[in-house]
Design a protein around this nucleic acid. Structure first.
Lengths: 150, 150
DNA sequence: GTTGAATAAAAATTCAAA
DNA sequence: TTTGAATTTTTATTCAAC
């Protein structure tokens, strides 16, 4: 399954340095996911991973830095999410964030305030905020980013 | 000359999307700089350029985002530099920032406060701040980044 | 230490297939 | 629409020269 595989890819690159698509292929195999280099090349494009040169000069895949998002804003977001969010999940290109009653608008607003790439819009009821992402891969990437932030 | 070429590379990728090293080769040729793909591959590593996937899905070379630097800090830096800096230049791995008298420590402090990759240390007199960078390529990259910020 | 030519390695794409 | 095998394209490295 594409979404599963891409999700695991994000996990893998957050845990260790992956220099080549073949390395990624092996890492996926270790987790029981069999694929091919061609597919990974497409996944990497979908997930908008970058290839960066690390401190030591070796290159590796990484999640693109969310541009224009200051760490201050990230801190504020973390605070708000921690105080308000109860659960969150991803479905296709949508992120669903459940909050304690009344705080969904605040959570949605906080996320809206960050210039998150691919975030098309948010809508919040009382205890549920919906984030509409441009595509499934970007929704998945944000899901994992929230995981990291918390 | 390596430094010249690398400097022009940074200019080129800030002006237009470069998808491949061959495109970069051509762009350099237009500016009278003749090189080879092998050399550009090395330059790209030296400058720690990343290859990212743009909004449209095409990949391009870009300057690595300075991690952990919030836009608030960038704003503050801009303000301070604009108010204090008179000239700036790069020499090898050193950036020399001249300021109006008395303000060099403030400028150096502001730069120190950002987590700039490759910035080893700063030393400031009355009207001159010196930034010691880890290597020439990183000094050059910061030079261009300051250009952008202002 | 820097470079280019040749080569090896890696990544993107094509095309057929499911 | 997703995928893998084969192929093409792109990038990194080797090695010789400077």
């Amino acid at each position: 399954m594409k979404a599963d595989r891409q999700s695991v890819i994000l996990e893998i690159i957050s845990e260790r340095d992956i220099e080549t698509q073949n390395q990624l292929l092996d890492a996926l195999a270790e987790r029981g996911i069999k694929s091919t280099q061609a597919t990974l090349s497409r996944d990497i494009r979908d997930l908008r991973l970058i290839k960066e040169t690390g401190p030591s000069g070796v290159s590796r895949y990484a999640v693109a830095e969310t541009k224009n998002v200051s760490s201050d804003v990230k801190d504020r977001l973390r605070t708000i999410l921690k105080q308000s969010m109860t659960t969150y999940d991803v479905a296709q290109n949508l992120l669903v964030i459940k909050t304690i009653p009344g705080l969904a608008p605040a959570a949605a607003g906080a996320l809206d305030g960050m210039n998150i790439e691919g975030l098309v819009g948010t809508i919040a009821g009382d205890d549920t905020a919906l984030l509409i992402m441009k595509d499934n891969a970007l929704a998945l990437a944000l899901f994992h980013e929230i995981e990291q932030i918390l």
